[in-house]
Write a protein that binds this DNA or RNA. Structure first.
Length: 736
DNA sequence: ATTGTTACGGTTTTT
DNA sequence: CCGTAACAAT
């Protein structure tokens, strides 16, 4: 992130109480967006067009002109990262007090914490289940219903559940499958719903859907919010789904001052239900007879060089049925867009590392460099390459902190304190650290709990239930019951106090030390980190307490582990690159079936176009330099396969490109030298058809090396492409 | 009940 | 290849 620019921005925004100053340095359409008064507003913001700047300035402007108090503004972002960023920018303008700036999920959680009790069995202390919790629960329910979780997979059912929930608010949507699958689904779904109610828990989908239900069942609650939020802003509107659309419409329904912001070309979440039509139809949808939607197009790009921008535009133009945008920039080219062909993933990683060294030499700071990839498994090879060449790096997103076992265990303790009905959390901690309570004991307790219709935690606290358990288990359970009782008083206090107590009373570090392997110490470090988080949370949110901390933990998966200013290269997926920018971007794995991804291709043109948008998003993150790489072979699941360059590469205009061979490749080629036709296979040439004893018939694609190193790349009809050493291959020419 | 072993299956992206 | 989950052994 460019420091110089940010500092200037901050300084200017600091004196931002004067409305006129908030328009300084903005172009004409940007000013129009900031100064828009009442009524619906659509901001079509091309990549790098200063969108975040416009939104934050607009918020400050609304406050500075007295159109709204900060607490009358609701700003919804797509990710927590974006919410954090926006909050800090708005705070820098001293306009943030009482403002709601959050994701849809966090906004809904906040609303439900207040009023969910009007909706039914839940209490304000409800737990939020993440995807893993949900799948785990579904799995046990599938088993309970007498089916095999391998045949009816939890993830599939989970996906169907989401569809089904959304369908209740969308008449056009198919509710559920039929046949045996439908039957299984219906049964498991009912069990799941009942269990979630009993456990006082909500999953991610529930947060949104139950809020809508609440609004529907209690119009008075909706009115409170709709009246309160004089101005509503939604960022990344192209990525909203139908339920989010309904929430937006409801919340902005009273004042009608809804501003949405987005770019149809950057819609990359259709696969999880996002609906681009929301933004495409916004103008028609939100215009009323009295007031038309104001539309502002931001087309000046402040980020990228013309070469990068032009290349990105050329690619996105291959998508059918989009509205052409005239993105333009005043910047000057620094370096052509580069395409690098590599031998394999290792070669690719080394190549990128080498180029990063070069960039560093020419004065590009590491925090201005990023490597993007389509799928997480590519992270490993890249990391190794960077480590070997001594390039410091940090991973953005990725392996989630709160998914780690030791963290989930401790969080579960907190969860049980706050919400004793949460059986999933209780099960997690019942024998952690080991206290002699095995599956059999748990089953006994669960049966007891089911008979009395009480929670598992309540069963643990019942002496009668514990008496049914024999042996060490009983003692362990008594200890646990006492522990929970001791901890009970901490549920209303600060989070870190409760955590410290849990750690002490369970001898948690001793427990970690027992499983001492290579992970042992890093586990302890993670726990320390959790503790530090809790302490910071308590300091920043004196009223937050354990409950607030749990909510934060449930919805913030990525922790702000990422420091945009650290002297490190950033590694991230294309999806998490959205909204960021870097001086130099490496986009690895530009290969068919990877980008575009094979699963997306199976979905047809829609899938392909979304992949193209993803590629476009990645390209447009780059300010000055962009390097697209692909490898001829890549290892996956322990198997090496041959790759083809991505079709997107061929959609780039030649005149903007520079095609490089990877250095490692070049070195290898030097060693091998040209094919000299001496020795075995002297009579072969490229294009010949040959026969191999084992692989059968194939055609020669290339020849290189000499004497014993002479080798051929052959495309076999059955066996695919192979590299063969001619000295051993015994190829027979059969024609050309 | 805990530990160690093997089999298995999965890897698009995130709240 | 990797980590997790079901399984067997003590």
């Amino acid at each position: 992130m460019s420091l110089d620019w940010m500092d200037v921005e901050r300084a200017r925004e600091d004196e931002g109480q004067d409305p006129a100053s908030l328009l300084e340095g903005l172009n004409e359409p940007q000013q129009r967006a900031v100064e828009h008064g009442e009524g619906p507003l659509l901001i079509l913001a091309g990549a790098g067009s200063g969108k975040t700047r416009v939104i934050t300035r607009r918020i400050a402007w609304l406050v500075a002109t007295g159109r709204a108090r900060p607490d009358e503004i609701l700003a919804i972002t797509f990710t927590n990262k974006a919410a954090r960023e926006m909050r800090s920018r708005v705070a820098a303008m001293r306009a943030a007090k009482g403002m709601w700036i959050a994701t849809f999920h966090a906004t809904c959680a906040r609303i439900l914490r207040r009023d969910i009790e009007l909706l039914g069995p839940w209490t304000r202390d409800f737990s939020i289940y993440d995807t893993a919790d949900k799948n785990q629960l579904l799995k046990t329910l599938i088993k309970e219903a007498g089916w095999d979780p391998k045949r009816f997979r939890p993830q599939v059912i989970s996906h169907m559940l989401g569809e089904w929930k959304a369908s209740q608010f969308d008449t056009e949507r198919q509710a559920a499958p039929d046949g045996l699958e439908g039957e299984v689904f219906a049964t498991v779904r009912d069990l799941y719903e009942a269990r979630m109610r009993a456990a006082n828990a909500l999953d991610f989908d529930d947060l949104l859907v139950r809020t809508l239900e609440l609004f529907r069942a209690q119009p008075g609650v909706l009115d409170q919010y709709a009246h309160r939020f004089r101005y509503v802003l939604v960022d990344e509107y192209q990525d909203t789904n139908h339920v989010q659309y309904l929430l937006t419409r409801a919340l902005a329904g009273w004042h009608g001052n809804l501003a949405v912001c987005g770019d149809p070309d950057q819609s990359i979440y259709a696969w999880r239900g996002a609906n681009v039509a929301n933004i495409l139809d916004f103008e028609r949808d939100f215009s009323t007879p009295e007031r038309a939607v104001a539309v502002v197009k931001l087309e000046q790009n402040y980020r990228s060089t013309p070469g990068i921008l032009g290349a990105a535009q050329a690619v996105i133009r291959h998508n059918a049925g989009r509205k052409e945008k005239d993105l333009w920039t005043e910047k000057e080219d620094v370096d052509p867009v580069r395409i690098v062909e590599c031998g394999d993933e290792e070669d690719e990683a080394n190549e990128i590392a080498a180029r990063i060294h070069g960039l560093r030499q020419s004065g590009v700071p590491l925090d201005e460099i990023a490597i993007f990839y389509r799928v997480n498994f590519m992270q490993r090879a890249l990391e190794r390459g960077l480590r070997l060449s001594g390039v410091p790096y940090q991973i953005v997103g990725g392996l989630e902190f709160y998914q780690r076992r030791e963290i989930k265990d401790l969080v579960s303790y907190l969860q049980v304190l706050v919400n004793p009905a949460d059986d999933v959390a209780t099960r997690r901690i019942i024998n952690v650290p080991a206290r002699g309570v095995g599956d059999k004991s748990v089953a006994l307790l669960e049966e007891f709990a089911r008979d009395r219709r009480i929670s598992l935690a309540a069963a643990i606290e019942s002496e009668e239930a514990r008496a049914r358990v024999r042996g060490v288990g009983r003692k362990g359970l008594t200890g646990l019951a006492r522990l929970l009782e001791d901890l009970g008083g901490l549920r209303d206090g600060p989070a870190h106090v409760a955590l410290v107590q849990i750690l002490e009373e369970t001898d948690y570090f001793v427990h970690l030390a027992k499983g001492e392997d290579a992970e042992g110490s890093s586990r302890a470090e993670n726990v320390e980190e959790l503790l530090a988080h809790a302490e910071r949370w308590d300091a920043e949110n004196p009223e937050g307490g354990v409950r607030g901390f749990l909510q934060e933990v449930a919805l913030v998966s990525d922790v702000d582990g990422w420091d945009p200013d650290a002297e490190r290269v950033s590694l991230l997926t294309l999806h998490s690159s959205k909204g960021l920018e870097f001086g130099a971007v490496f986009l690895a794995g530009c290969e068919e079936e990877l980008l575009p991804h094979v699963l997306a291709l199976e979905e047809g043109d829609g899938g392909l176009e979304e992949e193209r948008r993803l590629f476009y998003v990645g390209m447009t993150r780059a300010k000055e330099r962009l390097c697209l790489s692909w490898a001829r072979t890549r290892m996956r699941f322990g198997e090496t396969s041959w790759r083809e360059p991505s079709r997107f590469l061929s959609e780039l205009p030649d005149e903007l490109l520079e095609t490089d061979e990877s250095e490692a490749e070049a070195r290898e080629a030097d060693v091998l030298g040209d094919f000299d036709g001496a020795g075995a296979g002297a009579d072969l040439s490229v294009g010949d058809w040959v026969e191999h004893d084992h692989f059968g018939l194939g055609q020669i694609r290339s020849l290189e090396g000499s004497a014993v190193n002479a080798r051929a790349t052959v495309q076999f009809r059955e066996a695919g492409q192979r590299i063969l050493l001619l000295q051993y291959a015994n190829l027979k020419r059969v024609g050309n």
